[in-house]
């Protein structure tokens, strides 16, 4: 993406970042091959080779700016997040079903703004995705530059309801950052936590750094 911003030095930059581009596209290619093999339901040389061919063709000809991954992955926090997420999805389904079936229905809801603490595209996307699947909230608008999410909160008829929805989003943001946020994301969370007088979170044991964290 940075190669696209500089108009003048574009050619030089593109050549310089060629290896980096391959590195950035690699996760996507691997994922596409895995997807292809899963769809064929068989791991054979032919499915692997055709999958690799198609993945390379897709990434060459249907080019999109690569997703900048955080470069950090924490297995323990990721598992914790997954368990919590499944529980929240079940709770969301039950809660919405109850609101559908209860006699008074849902007369009023609210639209609330949530200021996220992290700024990376990946984190905003993931938090928005998770927020749409957990109880009470659907994302109706995203302000990418200021990382603000606007949620429609089902059945929120008081400021306390809105506050609860907001805090839930921020808790999920924190869980996601612990699982796969970059060190910069962790810094952003910690700055906020210190203001509130809470203990800072650390990158933690079982963190795997897939890329050198040079952005700090």
């Amino acid at each position: 993406m940075s190669a696209m911003k500089n108009g003048a030095g574009k050619l030089r930059r593109t050549r310089l970042t060629f290896r980096r581009t391959i590195w950035l596209q690699l996760p996507l290619v691997v994922w596409l091959v895995v997807l292809w093999v899963l769809l064929w339901e068989a791991v054979t040389p032919i499915t692997l080779a055709s999958g690799l061919l198609i993945a390379v063709l897709i990434t060459r000809f249907l080019y999109l700016p690569p997703v900048e991954l955080g470069g950090r992955f924490n297995l323990i926090w990721f598992l914790a997040f997954t368990v919590k997420f499944v529980a929240l999805v079940v709770a969301a389904s039950v809660q919405v079903t109850w609101m559908i079936l209860r006699p008074k229905g849902v007369p009023t809801s609210s639209i609330g703004a949530v200021q996220l603490r992290t700024r990376s595209d990946l984190m905003i996307t993931l938090v928005a995705q998770v927020t749409s699947l957990i109880p009470g909230s659907v994302v109706v608008e995203v302000n990418r530059h200021q990382s603000v999410l606007y949620l429609h909160v089902l059945g929120a008829t008081s400021d306390a309801d809105l506050k609860r929805a907001r805090e839930q989003v921020l808790r999920n943001e924190e869980r996601l950052v612990r699982a796969l946020g970059s060190l910069r994301d962790i810094d952003a969370i910690n700055r906020h936590r210190r203001e509130q007088g809470k203990r800072a979170i650390a990158a933690g044991a079982f963190s795997y750094f897939l890329r050198r964290q040079n952005e700090r």
Partner: peptide, 21 residues
């Protein structure tokens, strides 16, 4: 829920959540 909820934004909740489970 699509029938009972009052407006489009509430109906989105109904369309996106119980059906996942």
């Amino acid at each position: 829920g699509l029938l009972r909820f009052p407006d489009l934004l509430s109906r989105l909740h109904s369309a996106s959540k119980p059906q996942v489970l």
